[in-house]
Design a protein around this nucleic acid. Structure first.
Lengths: 349, 349
DNA sequence: CTGTTAGCGCGTTCAA
DNA sequence: TTGAACGCGCTAACAG
């Protein structure tokens, strides 16, 4: 392996000084080489320094550099979510992936954390993040979200709020979201054209602003389409598949079959559909079904659900870009960015 | 919002000194309060200091603290994966969630990064991680994995390797994995008992050690069960649903229908099943199907696939615990940890 | 219980 | 093109 690690004694950290000594130059020169300030270093010394860096296996000490330049090259990604498996949601997973990939290209690092709304203020976790900015997905009822938002703002760092329907409250915060309400309207138009008269909407009881927007858009769309549509909403206790199923079963036990079921996301749509199929109710003939998000998992269920496609990965990328330009240019390029969503016809309508 | 942010001038950073001055104590006392060393601080001064901390909105400067104590309280989670959406895989998502939750409880932070095998050594990204240890999921062919492993070892930091079948190469590295081979054997036993004579195994061409283990266990199991089973393996180009479908279609075009199809994970199993259903081939009557992992998404497809359950979340938790005790006690409690897997009967066998 | 001193490793500033 | 001095904010070690 490396040439001289016979013992397991913790080798002393190799510093810029050590490299300087070995290459017989000043520490400053090493620093210039490390940071690519080649204007200040002759080709020959640079080569020599680089050789010593490799030989000694030198790596910069980020805490020292950060302390000096007060820049961490790092952003914190926070999910306020009741579920411990906050990343299992595909939306979240895509956002993180997009964010990470954009930021790592610019040599930045992403620190992830899921946290329950109730613990947010107690927890020192967020305050302990050593980052230059945050990207946050909030959930929970409006007043709780607001309290968290205030804590975040008090951190006094660049902040990207994902999927928040509110306006950016100040210069230091920027909204990145998709047009969820528009998605709801697309679904309403589609269903209205199919003469749907009663709709069941299935959503988690955990309050996600994006899902609220979808439902609001749905209502709005039906209203605009004229016709007299009855919309019932049921709340599943948790985000889980069985929880959504239970909510639908509860509803169906007490109400006539609706003409359509709209899931707050594809998982909920598929859960609802599974019950209809269990009961031999034909989809889409007797009941139409639509979901929301359009991630790959939707392919597992048949018939394929009609949905509205979210660009979650791109949302993450955009958030990353926003933060990067905020870091480089001192301000966000825009206070709000809204990505479009796309209607995707499946076999369930 | 906060009481005095009239201007948008970047407020100067509040340091321990500022708090000390305001509370009329020495910086050291503030430090002791911040770090909970209450033995060294009287109740009264502590209260006073805490009041000033809150009033001035003081937060510790982690780079300074880290520089001083040479401890970052942070770990890096790395996925060597060809897919940019590395977190969309439920296994990975669960691992991250488990790791994050355990570590955040101990006031540690997790930095995530997905990286392509080919870029690993070029990239300065990993070297730039300011962390106390790494948790890594490797993929790719053995020699490539080995090269990466060596780079990682050269970082000279505590290292947890997830899902690697190898033995821990040194004191600083620890293996955390599940018994994938055992899972393969469970599946083989089950299928052998159902008199399966020909098996198609569908795996991604990207080389995941865990999947190799599953297949090896499967072979072993069939061998042990006696009988003369023919096992064919097809490789899907990517990890995607359609890619798996294409691989299965290609196989079926050239071979008679196997008695069973085993997916390297549930997604692959479900993709294979979708083709059989398209063609009106009865599952499980004509072809039996099994998957691997048992995450919730498996519920979307019907019939429900028989599978082997992975405890990915727990794997992440255990990795976190390993690292924490390594940090606190200077050594890993064990060099290898193997979690069991569980057979889960579905409707496809 | 509280204060003082010193220095972690780096990069900026300025002088050579 | 290179070097020396200094200090970023914090805490270990010790002195009071």
């Amino acid at each position: 392996m490396s040439d001289n690690d016979s013992g397991r004694a913790p080798r002393k950290r190799v510093t810029i000084k050590d490299v300087a000594k070995a290459a017989d130059v000043s520490p400053m020169t090493v620093s210039n080489v490390v940071n690519g300030k080649h204007q200040f270093v002759s080709e020959r010394t640079r080569k020599a320094v680089e050789r010593e860096i490799a030989r000694l296996n030198y790596r910069v000490q980020h805490s020292a550099r950060s302390l000096r330049v007060s820049r961490r090259r790092s952003v914190g990604m926070i999910f306020v979510d009741e579920s411990p498996s906050f990343l299992v949601d595909h939306f979240n997973a895509h956002v993180v992936a997009g964010l990470c990939n954009v930021l790592s290209t610019a040599d930045h690092t992403v620190t992830v954390q899921g946290i329950r709304a109730g613990q947010f203020n107690q927890s020192s976790i967020i305050r302990n993040f050593a980052v230059d900015g945050f990207c946050v997905v909030l959930s929970g009822p409006p007043d709780e979200r607001n309290a968290i938002l205030n804590s975040l703002i008090n951190l006094d760092q660049p902040l990207v709020l994902m999927q928040e329907p509110i306006a950016s409250p100040n210069q230091e915060t920027c909204i990145v979201r998709q047009d969820d309400a528009g998605g709801g309207r697309l679904l309403a138009d589609h269903l209205a054209a199919r003469r749907v008269g009663t709709v069941l909407v299935v959503v988690p009881s955990q309050n996600w602003p994006a899902i609220d927007q979808r439902v609001a858009g749905l209502r709005e769309g039906f209203l605009a389409a004229g016709g007299d549509v009855r919309i019932d909403v049921v709340h599943a206790e948790t985000e889980e598949f069985d929880s959504a199923r239970a909510a639908v079963i509860g509803y169906l036990d007490r109400h006539p079959l609706p003409n359509a079921i709209v899931g707050g996301n594809d998982r909920f749509a598929i859960a609802a559909m599974s019950i209809l199929l269990d009961r031999g109710i034909a989809v889409p003939e007797r009941v139409k079904i639509t979901g929301f998000n359009g991630f790959e998992q939707r392919r597992y269920a048949r018939p394929l659900v009609t949905t509205v496609i979210s660009s979650a990965y791109e949302l993450g990328e955009r958030a990353g870009q926003m933060l990067l330009t905020r870091f480089e240019e001192g301000r966000f390029p825009t206070r709000e960015l809204v990505l479009p969503v796309y209607f995707e016809l499946g076999e369930t309508t």
